[in-house]
Amino acid sequence: MGSGVSDTAFEIAASVLVPGRAGGAALVLDDSLSFWGGFDCARGEIIDIHHPQHGQRVGGSILLIPASRGSAGTPGGIAETLRNGSGPHALVLAERDVNIGIGALVANRLYGMEVPVVAIRLDEMMRIRSGDRIEIDPRGTISVRR
């Protein structure tokens, strides 16, 4: 536990889908998203008008998202947003989502990046709030500070 009354620190053991090390501020999405059609790769922005966080940019965050939705284009959307620097530093999912995993894997390989993708349970994801400080290590340990 931290020193102040409002400080909280805890760890969650995640399953590693794509290994890597990353840190940053959490951005928790309330709904799944298609990264083709629902997402602007150039700006890293949610453009799906039905999404509760429509207009939100994800760049530089540790992005927590239940899963991707729909399209075969999601891996390309992930790889493209990582390529052009508008994407998150890591993705934390509540499902073992192949499309997001493969998108990050391809970007890591092509561009020498180290963007991890890990999976936790939905109830674990709900312990994390947007703005929390997150560190992820290559074994999938998520350290959370608030």
């Binding site: 083709w36 790769c41 075969a72 284009g73 390309g76 959307g77 790889a79 493209e80 990582l82 390529r83 052009n84 391809v106 970007a107 092509l110 561009y111």
Partner: peptide, 14 residues
């Protein structure tokens, strides 16, 4: 295959 459908520069790099 669908990867021939353009979705940004990353597709071409791949």
């Amino acid at each position: 295959i669908d990867a021939c459908f353009y979705n940004g520069r990353a597709h071409l790099d791949f």
